[in-house]
């Protein structure tokens, strides 16, 4: 038996060693580095103090949280009816195709997808062209390089993701729940509100959590679509690395970002069965 277990450890060892060397060690290094200063020796909490005292860093987190919250909400509201239609209105034999189509742009390169929204929202882009063509406005409306553009780009991506998770959840539900509620005299609305919606909460929460984590940690969409007017935390971090080369400060900011994500995870943990993954 001991011999057999040795083989098991040997098989698991490369993966464990790899994770230790290239994930845990670098992360530990980052934590230590965040406790030093760029131009001084010794340990210090100065980077974390800076986060709380310097308005621009605070604002980064505030913008990140606001944008992510709006994106998550709007995406759920748009995706839920869509997933419902795919699951209940579209005939069974077409559902797979309809779903595949609905998430097709999901497969585009992430950078390209953000850029393609720039085409739509640009000053001379399609929407402004249409608005002016219809005579609704004389001058082009500024949509690119705004918070609106960032949110649109994010919502586009996460509607597809949430449609997928909610659709999967809806398909797992037995139709008997709705029938039972109707037999007991519930109106369609009450059936939905008291029976179907609570039962699809896991699908919503998994999608919402993924949306939150991916959106709040993303640099590309805010940078391409939002521009430099209103920075989110990842943009602030990248600026510290790129322009100033301040690794201790950017490490501290990254760790703060990670703590926010961890908090979100703890808040959603009861709905996320990560052990199933």
């Amino acid at each position: 038996m001991r011999n057999a277990n040795t083989a098991g450890w040997l098989a698991a060892a490369p993966a464990l060693a790899f994770t230790l060397v290239f994930f845990i060690l670098p992360f530990a290094g980052m934590v230590l580095l965040s406790l030093t200063a760029k131009d001084a020796d010794g340990w210090t909490l100065a980077n974390y103090q800076q986060f709380f005292s310097n308005r621009s860093y605070w604002l980064g987190l505030k913008n990140s949280l606001e944008i992510t919250a709006i994106v998550t909400l709007v995406s759920i509201v748009l995706a839920y009816p869509f997933a419902w239609i795919l699951a209940h209105v579209v005939p069974e034999r077409w559902q797979r195709l309809a779903l595949l189509l609905a998430i097709l742009p999901f497969w585009t390169s992430y950078v390209v997808r953000s850029y393609s929204w720039l085409l739509v929202l640009a000053e001379k882009g399609v929407i402004n062209d249409l608005i002016q063509g219809l005579g609704l406005a004389d001058a082009p409306i500024q949509m690119a390089n705004t918070r609106f553009a960032t949110i649109t780009g994010f919502v586009h991506f996460f509607v597809m993701l949430l449609t997928l998770t909610i659709y999967a959840n809806l398909k797992q539900l037995s139709p008997n729940y709705a029938k039972a509620a109707a037999d007991l005299g519930a109106s369609p609305f009450r059936t939905f509100w008291h029976v179907i919606l609570p039962l699809t909460l896991p699908g919503i929460m998994v999608g919402a959590f993924l949306t939150f984590v991916l959106a709040i940690g993303d640099y590309i969409t805010p940078q391409i679509l939002g521009g430099n007017n209103e920075l989110v935390l990842p943009q602030v971090i990248m600026m510290q690395i790129g322009r100033r080369g301040d690794f201790p400060l950017s490490s501290a900011l990254a760790i703060i970002l990670m703590l926010v994500i961890t908090l979100a995870y703890v808040a959603c943990a009861r709905w996320l069965k990560l052990e199933r993954v």
């Binding site: 984590v213 971090i237 490490s251 970002l257 961890t262």
Partner: peptide
């Protein structure tokens, strides 16, 4: 469970 940005920085 960790953002690509943070792993990449590390």
């Amino acid at each position: 469970t960790v953002s690509y940005l943070i792993i990449g920085m590390g």
